[in-house]
Nucleic acid binder design. Structure first.
Length: 649
DNA sequence: GTTTCGGTTCTTTTT
DNA sequence: GAACCGAAAC
């Protein structure tokens, strides 16, 4: 085999068929563990080897992690030539287009990206401006989430309000008015939330012919990962980008569609053959990841599912041992079981990073987390909080934000609220006094602020003022990293120590942020990077680094695409998993079922399904739980049953 | 009138 | 851990 053929290496006939599929639309139906990433990266390598310039290839994924992993693996196959390939998330792609063309849609080119917390804050203010109080109205977060679902699923907001807020007592017309104010304020401030990025990215492609045609011309090949999780906007974006050359290569598994709640529509993948009648469809069914016993559980789970491409995973690994269903008294017992089982697995020779504990929702991990801490077992949590949404990161970013966008009252309030004797009210007053605009790079604005500050705050602020004035005197746009450092030295370093017990760790985060900032041309670009950066690469390592990679704790959603030798799934009880709320919202358990399928298929060798029989309530009461339908429905001989206290382990 | 503090309650899932 | 609420402190 020649080196030009390196992309053929190690592919089975199914995978090879996908990699070699001719130009034109291709749908790869890749069941869990069947080599989806391998297929995608080999396809990229093949294209490059056959002379397609890498910068004419677009590879879209849902997470930064997936993008990075694929690019690395493609580079391993095709060499540095892959360097020019553009790979990233849908949001990145949209942001990349908007960075250059936002003014064509009436946005400033240095628009800011609102993360979920910012958006919530803005929604809160929008509500307040109309005189509604969260107390006797709908909470800002609920409205924000509803607006987001409406946008992402392209459904009228009215309908969703009717469905989900029918019993809330709020007047639908009022909710709509709040949503309108929210949209208007974003527009006025030149800010976009995550959904706006997608919507406006698509608008560029459809409404601005020069952009749409240019992009469609540039990308001769478009490859999309996790296609089952695309929402209508994302699917149309890809249709547009691939519209000129027609080479749309999508990979997905309708069984793993778990983002319906945020507007994803797996009908995108189901209807692909109808939308592209000439599409080549390639199934990948040979599973290399898991032992047959694990696959049997996964297959049984999906056998009853309707509205899916029927398929069964074929095992190639040798028989090993059955998954274990462990019945436990309550969450405490479950936590002790987890620790005991982890110890046993480690004794049997598993390495910590080969083991994961998975759960439906973050709070379900709390007891286990505490037990692990108590037992001094290090663990890595793929946490819910994104890097940017941690308080200290948002705090130090307030200044760069104001530099990029002086009318950003959210950033102003955040910054001033850090000072003593300044709370919401005082910050409000100050905002008015400085003329509802504050540019920390302007000497005039700085003076104006100092004069308006209350005495106690002015004293603390003085060193910051001095540092900023120096930046201002230098002229030009101060660089964000420098401003953050000034802020840190003059005030925030001390504030951290006074406020947080883990100040050193937070300080490290900030220093790292400053280091990274050097790589960016403008403050706005720097802020975009932070807002779009997921936290996975900075996940909270609870034992403080150093040692060997520890056991992973993760939600099932965040575990998608990952695999471990041993997997323990928590809280398999009705109401917990499947989650009562999810069933109430969607009307069926289809998505929860797929989620269980995703959980089970993360396991290579060993799978433990924990079934607590009770749940402790805050008032001290004990709530009996029924075992989850997902374990109850499993055919008798697919799992071993253990009635257990930790003493058995 | 505001801010701050201390206690209480509750966590879906994410770019 | 963070968000919320009520009460104390400034």
């Amino acid at each position: 085999m020649t080196s030009a053929d390196a992309w053929r290496a190690g592919l089975n006939p199914q995978q090879l068929a996908a990699v070699e599929a001719p130009d034109g639309p291709v749908l790869v139906l890749a069941a869990a563990g069947t080599g989806k990433t391998r297929t995608l990266t080999h396809r990229v390598a093949r294209l490059v080897a056959e002379g397609v310039p890498p910068d004419r290839i677009l590879l879209v994924t849902f997470t930064n992690r997936a993008a990075r992993e694929m690019l690395e693996r493609a580079r391993g196959l095709a060499g540095e030539a892959v360097g020019g390939l553009w790979g990233g998330t849908f949001h990145h792609l949209a942001n990349r287009l908007l960075r250059r063309h936002a003014p064509k849609l009436g946005y400033p080119s240095d628009y800011l990206i609102l993360d979920t917390a910012d958006a919530k804050q803005l929604m809160k203010e929008s509500m307040a401006s109309l005189g509604f109080k969260p107390r006797d109205f709908v909470s800002p977060e609920v409205i924000r989430a509803l607006v987001s679902v409406a946008v992402n699923s392209r459904r009228p907001l009215e309908d969703l309000i009717g469905e989900r807020l029918a019993d809330s007592g709020a007047d639908p017309a009022d909710v709509l008015r709040v949503a309108e104010v929210y949209a208007r304020r974003k527009q006025e401030l030149g800010q976009m939330d995550f959904d706006d990025l997608l919507v406006n990215g698509l608008r560029l492609l459809t409404e601005v012919p020069a952009v749409g045609e240019g992009v469609a011309w540039q990308f001769r090949h478009v490859l999309v990962d996790e296609y089952q999780d695309t929402n209508p906007i994302q699917a149309e974006m890809m249709d547009r980008v691939a519209s000129r050359h027609g080479n749309l290569f999508v990979v997905g598994d309708d069984f793993q569609s778990i983002y319906g709640w945020r507007g994803a529509d797996f009908r995108n993948i189901l209807s692909f053959p109808e939308r592209y009648p000439r599409a080549t469809v390639v199934p990948l069914t040979i599973n290399y990841r898991s032992v047959p016993e694990v696959l049997e559980v996964a297959n049984a789970t999906m056998r009853e599912a309707v509205h899916q491409f029927p398929k069964t995973m074929e095992a190639v690994r040798e028989a090993y041992r059955r998954p274990v269903r462990v019945t436990l008294w309550d969450g405490q017992a479950q936590a002790r079981f987890v620790v005991a089982r982890l110890r046993a697995l480690l004794r049997e020779g598993y390495r910590p990073h080969e083991i994961a504990v998975l759960y439906r929702s973050h709070f379900q991990a709390l007891e286990t987390q505490m037990e692990l801490q108590k037992e001094q077992m290090p663990f890595l949590m793929l946490s819910g909080l994104r890097f940017y949404e941690q308080a200290h990161i948002k705090d130090v970013c307030a200044l760069p934000r104001l530099l990029a966008s002086p009318r950003d009252d959210l950033a102003f309030r955040r910054l001033l609220g850090l000072l003593p004797r300044v709370g919401a009210k005082t910050a409000d007053t100050l905002w008015t006094k400085v003329g509802r605009e504050f540019n920390p790079g302007s000497a005039v604005d700085l003076e104006r602020l100092v004069k308006a500050l209350p005495a106690a705050a002015r004293e603390i602020w003085a060193p910051v003022h001095e540092g900023l004035a120096k930046h201002a005197a230098r002229g030009g746009e101060p660089d964000p990293g420098g401003v953050i450092e000034t802020f840190l030295d003059a005030f925030y370093g001390g504030f951290l120590q006074r406020t947080y017990d883990n100040a050193p760790r937070r300080l490290d985060d900030i220093r790292e942020l400053v280091n990274q900032s050097a790589a960016f041309g403008s403050g706005a670009e720097f802020l975009h990077m932070i807002a779009l950066q997921s936290n996975l690469e900075d996940a909270g390592d609870v034992d403080g680094g150093g040692g060997p990679p520890p056991v992973t704790l993760s939600t099932i959603h965040q575990a998608k695409g990952l695999e471990w030798k041993a997997v323990i799934v928590l809280w398999l009880a009705e109401g917990m998993f499947p989650a009562a709320r999810s069933i109430a919202e969607s009307g069926d358990d289809a998505e929860e079922r797929r989620l269980f399928y995703v959980a089970a298929t993360r396991a290579q060798d060993e799978l433990y399904l924990c079934v607590p029989r009770t749940r402790r309530l805050r008032d001290g009461g004990v709530l009996p739980l029924d075992p989850s339908r997902f374990v109850e429905e499993l055919p008798k001989d697919t799992v071993d049953r253990v009635e257990s206290g930790p003493w058995n382990w």
